[in-house]
Design a protein around this nucleic acid. Structure first.
Lengths: 227, 227
DNA sequence: CCCCATAACATTGTCGACAATATTCTTGAC
DNA sequence: GTCAAGAATATTGTCGACAATGTTATGGGG
């Protein structure tokens, strides 16, 4: 593992945090594993103080859990918790869509349209073997959250949910099986937001997230039955 | 300022965090003021390392903001941000009420009923000059959030919203002017939750929070006009 | 008198070391 | 061979000091 230098993170702790965050999300540091401060500090060639601050932020992002005098472990992901997140997302992103319909600028809407169109092409050409699918989908949701222009909502989503969702997708390797229906829903949502219909935007976004969750529930119960 | 020893906070950083959290929420450390690490560390008789970790957690709770190489300041609260929080609360607590209607235990419901009843007595006797009003109201909302049995939702509410809401109330000294209508709404919400009607529970909770926000908007615009 | 450059100062970021707590290993009894 | 108690080890929590960056004070030129 090597520290990133390209980002605009000014302080060492920032860089360490970003490095560890990616490493955890992408599974380089496996879920459930213990984080040894001396070991990691040595490998990153930094002091424990900086590392500890970074770990503190990971904890704030719900990526690790800490026990006093024992240490930090990467969070264990189970299906129940994943579904919990989707309930929160349904509420939060529903409101985000509502606010986005009221507050998004012309330019933001254009970007959103471009993203969805691009995403559609990617799928039609079938060039997209799972990876861009997820990234594209998450980008869509992120853009709408940002379009709410509600700083608290944005920060909540980015700090407490975003990384976790990405982590789950990496770990479970969820190929959503409903990319096309999801894409269609994305198109509709963009239209409604562009039309400024906040009521309908919230309704549709909630339905969209709920459908994802229900799809997930089916897949997870299948897996559980196999085991 | 003195460090608390009564709580079960095991580590020094925990105690410092709790101390500072209360101090900020209750205005002992005024909003917008800078937090000097050397000064505070000296006054609390602790090292800067522990203090810095505590400040990190305050940042995670949105109680302070940090600029690299500059330091931490207690958050400035303005009306716009307060309203933003209420939008988030509407979404989050609406979902919480929905889930509470599905998952709350008999005992939890009894506690909730007791709280609301107690709150009603307090108001009728008019013993309640603003203070308990707020605490009681917030307790009500907290109980429902906890009743959702959704750990992510609970943690989101407690870590990112709860302290801020308390801080706003202290600072603005908001006497809500609609304690009685609010109480009636509380009664209804409890009934609906007890009946297990999740759909209606969400609807009513959202309406309740929205009414608070709209009431707030009126009061704030009044204040703004006076200035 | 005002403004800018430079120096003095203060504050934050980072580090290595010690103390307190947890974990592992050893040893002995049953 | 298994279990428990205690010693040895490792890890986390806390501390004080130095380096890097910001901020303020000083002084000279316009």
């Amino acid at each position: 593992m090597i520290l990133t230098t390209q980002t605009d993170a000014t302080t060492l702790t920032d860089r360490v945090f970003e490095t560890l965050c990616s490493a955890i999300v992408e599974g380089d540091i496996p879920a459930g594993s213990k984080i040894s401060e001396p070991d990691l500090a040595k490998r990153l060639q930094i002091s424990r103080a900086s590392l500890r601050e970074a770990i503190g932020r990971l904890e704030a992002c719900n990526l690790v859990t800490r026990k006093p005098n024992v240490g930090a472990r990467v969070v264990e992901l189970n299906s129940a918790q994943l579904l919990e997140i989707y309930h929160v997302r349904e509420a939060l992103e529903g409101m985000a869509a509502r606010l986005a319909a009221q507050h998004m600028t012309e330019q933001e809407i254009e970007e959103l349209k471009a993203l969805v169109t691009e995403h559609g092409h990617q799928i039609e050409q079938n060039e997209d073997h799972g990876h861009f699918q997820h990234v594209g989908d998450l980008d869509f949701h992120l853009l709408i959250v940002q379009g709410s222009h509600n700083s608290r909502l944005i920060s909540l989503f980015q700090h407490d949910l975003y990384h976790l969702v990405r982590m789950y997708r990496h770990q479970f390797g969820l190929t959503s099986q409903r990319t096309k229906p999801a894409l269609v829903e994305h198109y509709y949502i963009v239209d409604v937001i562009a039309a400024g219909d906040s009521e309908m935007a919230e309704l549709m976004m909630r339905r969209h997230v709920r459908a994802s969750r229900e799809n997930l529930e089916r897949m997870l119960s299948q897996n559980d039955n196999i085991e």
